[in-house]
Computed example of a mutant assay.
Amino acid sequence: MSDFAKSLEVSSSGLRAQANRLRHLSENISNVDTPGYRRKLVSFETAFVSDDMPATVKTSPVRLDQSELETVYDPSHPLASEAGEYQGSNVNLLIELADAKEAQRSYEANLKMFEQTRKMSAGLMDLLRR
């Protein structure tokens, strides 16, 4: 397999991993006010395809954040106990937005690498045709 193909495979695995991360971050953000919702956590791991291919990245199975759920006081809420409290979510909007910005930047970096490799490959093909 050519070095160009290897480079494209590495950058495309990064694109897939960051897209998956962004999907779960957006789910967390959209459920910030959902009672009982636990934040989804995504981490990355190395994926080996074969001996002649460089290591790529993939997302590990999704885990749920086990930190305590926020206690919300609202006696009018249908889920409220007799004390007027219910369990909110453990999503911190500030953390989710910062993680989303980081994932977006990583996605853009992988996309730039993919585009640059494609341009170099096209340039090489043009040189070989001459």
Rank of each mutant, 00 (worst) to 15 (best):
I29R: 13
G36D: 08
V91I: 13
D3F: 06
N31L: 11
V57M: 12
A122E: 14
A103Q: 13
F48D: 13
S43C: 01
N20G: 12
D51K: 08
E68G: 15
V72G: 00
R130K: 09
Y37V: 01
R105P: 07
E85P: 04
N92C: 13
Q104A: 14
S50I: 04
R130N: 07
V91G: 06
A122C: 00
K119I: 03
A100F: 06
K119V: 09
A122L: 11
Q66R: 14
A83G: 09
S89G: 10
L124S: 14
S121Q: 08
F4T: 01
A103H: 07
Y86L: 12
Y107M: 11
E70A: 11
R118D: 10
F44L: 13
A5H: 09
L64N: 07
V32I: 07
R118F: 08
V32Y: 12
L128R: 11
F44A: 09
F48G: 01
L22N: 03
S60W: 03
N92K: 05
E68Q: 11
V91Q: 01
A47E: 15
L111T: 15
E27A: 12
P35L: 08
Y107V: 01
A19L: 05
R118I: 03
Q66P: 02
F48T: 12
V49T: 13
K6Q: 15
R16D: 08
T46R: 04
F44R: 04
S13K: 04
Q66K: 09
T71M: 15
K101L: 08
G84R: 10
V42S: 06
T117E: 05
V10Y: 06
L97Y: 08
V32N: 10
P78M: 03
T59W: 05
L127H: 01
S7K: 05
S12L: 07
G36F: 08
Y37R: 12
L127S: 15
P61D: 06
T34L: 07
K112Q: 14
T117Q: 09
M113K: 05
E27F: 03
A98Q: 11
L64F: 12
N90P: 11
L22V: 09
D74G: 04
D33Q: 10
A80D: 06
D99P: 02
V10C: 09
V42F: 14
S13R: 12
E85D: 12
A47T: 02
A100E: 02
L127D: 14
N31I: 02
R39T: 06
P35H: 13
V10P: 00
